[in-house]
Simulated assay, not measured.
Amino acid sequence: MVSDSGIHLHARGEWREPSLTHRTIRFQKGLYAQFHHLFLLKAGKATFVLDTEEERSLQGPTLAYLPPQSRCALHMAAGAAGFLVGASPQIMVDAIGDRAESYALRIFGEQAWFMAEPNIDAVNEIQPLTAGFVRELDDPSRASWMAITAYMRLILMALWRAGGAETSEQRGRGGNASILQRYRQLVEAWFRQHRPMTDYARELGVTTDRLHAICRNALGRSPVQLLHERVVQEAKLRLERSARTVQEISDGLGFRDPTYFSHFFKRKTGFSPAAYRNVARKSEVAESTLSSGYADWP
Rank of each mutant, 00 (worst) to 15 (best):
Q193N: 04
H194G: 07
H194R: 12
H194A: 11
R195L: 15
R195N: 06
P196G: 03
P196S: 04
D199E: 05
Y200P: 12
A201C: 03
A201D: 08
R202F: 03
L204R: 07
G205V: 07
G205T: 03
D209H: 07
R210S: 11
L211G: 02
L211Q: 06
A213F: 00
I214M: 02
I214P: 00
R216A: 12
R216F: 01
N217A: 11
N217S: 07
N217P: 02
A218T: 10
L219A: 12
L219P: 02
R221D: 01
S222G: 07
Q225L: 07
L226D: 02
L226A: 06
H228Q: 13
E229S: 15
E229L: 13
V231E: 15
V231M: 11
Q233G: 15
Q233R: 14
E234F: 09
E234T: 14
K236R: 15
K236I: 04
K236S: 05
K236C: 14
L237S: 10
L237M: 08
R238F: 04
E240D: 14
S242P: 09
R244D: 14
R244K: 15
R244S: 07
T245P: 08
Q247F: 03
E248A: 14
I249M: 09
I249D: 10
I249Q: 05
G252W: 01
L253E: 03
L253T: 09
G254Q: 13
G254Y: 09
F255R: 00
F255W: 10
R256H: 13
D257K: 01
D257Y: 05
P258T: 03
T259Q: 15
T259Y: 15
T259R: 08
Y260V: 06
Y260M: 14
Y260C: 07
S262L: 04
F264Q: 13
F264R: 09
F265Q: 05
R267P: 00
R267T: 09
T269K: 09
G270V: 09
S272M: 05
P273Y: 02
P273N: 02
P273R: 02
P273D: 01
A274G: 11
A275T: 04
R277Q: 05
N278L: 01
A280E: 13
K282T: 11
K282Q: 15
S283A: 04
E284H: 06
E284Y: 11
V285E: 13
A286F: 09
E287M: 05
E287P: 00
S288P: 00
T289Q: 11
T289I: 09
T289K: 08
S291A: 10
Y294N: 15
A295H: 10
A295W: 09
D296S: 04
W297M: 05
W297C: 00
P298A: 01
P298M: 00
